[in-house]
Nucleic acid binder design. Sequence first.
DNA 1: ATATGTGTTATACATGTAATATAACAGATG
DNA 2: CATCTGTTATATTACATGTATAACACATAT
Lengths: 131, 131
Amino acid sequence: MFIELDLQSETPIYAQLVDQIVEGIASGELKRGDPLPSVRRLAEELGINLHTVNKSYNLLKQEGFLQVHRKQGVIVHPDGMPGVTEAFEAKLQRQLRSLAAEAAVRGMTEEAFTEESRSVYRDTITNRGGG
Amino acid sequence: MFIELDLQSETPIYAQLVDQIVEGIASGELKRGDPLPSVRRLAEELGINLHTVNKSYNLLKQEGFLQVHRKQGVIVHPDGMPGVTEAFEAKLQRQLRSLAAEAAVRGMTEEAFTEESRSVYRDTITNRGGG
DNA sequence: ATATGTGTTATACATGTAATATAACAGATG
DNA sequence: CATCTGTTATATTACATGTATAACACATAT
């Protein structure tokens, strides 16, 4: 897998895992219906506990990004991703507001902030490594 | 004060406080040298504990946003705000990446994401209420 | 001097989250 | 039957959050 954890980070492991799986879908590295490792295998691979992986998988399942097949195990949701919900819009605005405020206070211009957002978006959907 | 806390939120109170003070500076509601309420007064005003306010003030002091005068109490730093440090750049990119990935997966276009960033930035530096 | 108001520090306590460790269960697969 | 799925339950450790109480050093005003 492409996942790299920072065990020193203040960001919880399960949250890092959620982020990187979503980023994997965004970059095209993970496509509809693609299988993910079992909770036990991924946990061992990453050197973390089964329950931590399970927590991440469950969050992603609740959000509609993943699906659990009794047969195929955990897979990327084959019927497409959920759209821009109100909950996501609210979260997006809340976090952007916090970042924009600090950026503005530190002297970052509107253009710089906007272009950084654009740049990061582009990097995100760009395929990484070899798919 | 202009501060409104959401005690039900999963965002820690001290973090909400930090955010809103930074937003107050960004919007121009708080200017260089402006005094802030004492930890005890603000705590009582908001119905929270002294130490929670103190934690927020300390974080803002360490970042260089606030200054503590033995005489004037806590004030907005009079010598200007800190610039775009490497640490802030890293934090900005890390959080933007997470948001951009989820936005992209949910079908939000680069333009939509970029314009939302620009819009939030503008709202942030726009004066609120009556300064 | 006394009282009051600063920020600061120390200690203690309660609560919730994060992460780990074992263990067991139901269903599917070989 | 053994093995591999996700899932659930329980227990434990560690840390973050928030509150509570108290005290300290310094400054101000009466």
